[in-house]
Design a protein around this nucleic acid. Sequence first.
DNA 1: ACGTTATTTGATTTATTTATCAAATAATCT
DNA 2: AGATTATTTGATAAATAAATCAAATAACGT
Lengths: 132, 132
Amino acid sequence: MNDEIRCAIKHYMNIGEQIKKTRTAKNLSQKEVALALEMDQAQFSRIENGKTDPSFSTIEKIAHALGVGLVELVNADDIFKEVNSYDKSIFEKLALVDQLEEKEKSAFFSILDALVSKKRLKDTLSHALNMI
Amino acid sequence: MNDEIRCAIKHYMNIGEQIKKTRTAKNLSQKEVALALEMDQAQFSRIENGKTDPSFSTIEKIAHALGVGLVELVNADDIFKEVNSYDKSIFEKLALVDQLEEKEKSAFFSILDALVSKKRLKDTLSHALNMI
DNA sequence: ACGTTATTTGATTTATTTATCAAATAATCT
DNA sequence: AGATTATTTGATAAATAAATCAAATAACGT
């Protein structure tokens, strides 16, 4: 896993930290939990320390082995609950799209798609530049 | 991914189904969401259909692109309680607009303003014509 | 300080996700 | 039905998680 991805993960949430917090709160060792998981303890350590980006099912299994639900494991740091609260003024404006006719609506969204893909291209390019 | 793992996933939850439910409830296409995600649309399809076991960060990114928190994605059924009369699809495009940079956002809304005022002009004109 | 247990890290191999492109199928609209 | 759009599936290459074993640190109790 490269730094960019690790950064992206961190930007979202530190699931490893949540896992460790939950595990230690229950006085469990990595070995015990990993055993219950049928997962290698070394791999479990890497997950706790964010050295790897585990699969979703692995997170589910860990939650299960820790005796908590996925939501409990995760919810504390779900920062996007706030980030996604929509800007009201933007919402008002976007509601205007409703008044457009079909043809113009689709044109409008074509532009949105184009802008988003343009951004994607730009991100990809700048990423490629950083590789040099 | 072998059958055993796929079974294990199913035993826990069908996250792909939740994603699809959320996406369709918001009237978004795979293409749109995948674009916002900077993920291949084909891969997105495989995730929705449980053909692959996505990474945790991928699920986080999908939740973000869909404009919901992880918890809401996991409990995707809750979405329907907030569906109201107007066309939600427009509202939900906000998740995509949110990805744009400021400059592009304002350009985007300039175009919207232009389209809306054009329509108003047209309506006014046709109304005036009917007066004749 | 010593011994024991717990955790981290390294190195290597294997399994699987992801990216990409193409093509087939399904769904939708006129 | 025909056309257009959306989704699924296939094949292949590249990136990366997971399994395994070993060895180095760290943490902890006595």
